[in-house]
Nucleic acid binder design. Sequence first.
DNA 1: ATAAATAGTAACGGAGCCGAAACGAAGAAT
DNA 2: ATTCTTCGTTTCGGCTCCGTTACTATTTAT
Lengths: 116, 116
Amino acid sequence: MPIDLRPGQALRLLHEVNLCLVRDGDFDLSARQMTILLTVYLEPPPHTVRGLATRLNVTKPAITRALDTLGNMKLLTRKRDEADRRNVIIGRTVEGALYLDQLGNLITVKARGLPR
Amino acid sequence: MPIDLRPGQALRLLHEVNLCLVRDGDFDLSARQMTILLTVYLEPPPHTVRGLATRLNVTKPAITRALDTLGNMKLLTRKRDEADRRNVIIGRTVEGALYLDQLGNLITVKARGLPR
DNA sequence: ATAAATAGTAACGGAGCCGAAACGAAGAAT
DNA sequence: ATTCTTCGTTTCGGCTCCGTTACTATTTAT
């Protein structure tokens, strides 16, 4: 049985979640940064700069800069690939996992409170 | 019967929607701009700069600038309140309604395709 | 060994957004 | 009529992000 979420409900859900993030936002991630974060945490590793660039259809420098930001926020880590030292492997952190955990819970709670 | 969307599913849904928006994004709205747009279209009018500022917990200039951007994108309009000419009333547009319509449909489709 | 390809980053100029403060216009209070 | 308040905008310096281009380091091909 698939999730049945009508368009009006979807927008309302998005609205409530966005309101929480904007109002009490500790972090203020752009759509691009959020997408990178979700990709790293939800899709199977390994993740590289090049891989993310093609997956998101943006340039490599854009990924590098986003990784700088997300790295400063401790949401992600970078380390050299020892097998092929040209590559950089993007890894997960406790803080990043916690952040997404809270975000997922927020959405769940808001979805539960949605009018029929 | 409330919508039952587990945290993991919520993050996956957010991921897929974000991917679409980032990859083929005509517009690239910030979280704040998106929240303003949703507030104007989902909450009952009238909407003013001051009202949005307090609702989103941001400064008035931030709202003014976001309205500039959203206005240039034709997603929103501004007009003077003739009753109290200090106020500016923020209104909806066909383009804005269409944009949110498509967004709602996108979320619905992605939700339907979510694994159980 | 040398050349070519690949991965990631730095440098550059430009554009957009930020909060704080100042501003002008409109209304309310006295 | 003159102050006082409210509303939205503008201005200011600062910060972040953007895409393009150029660069270094590493690996592969010849």
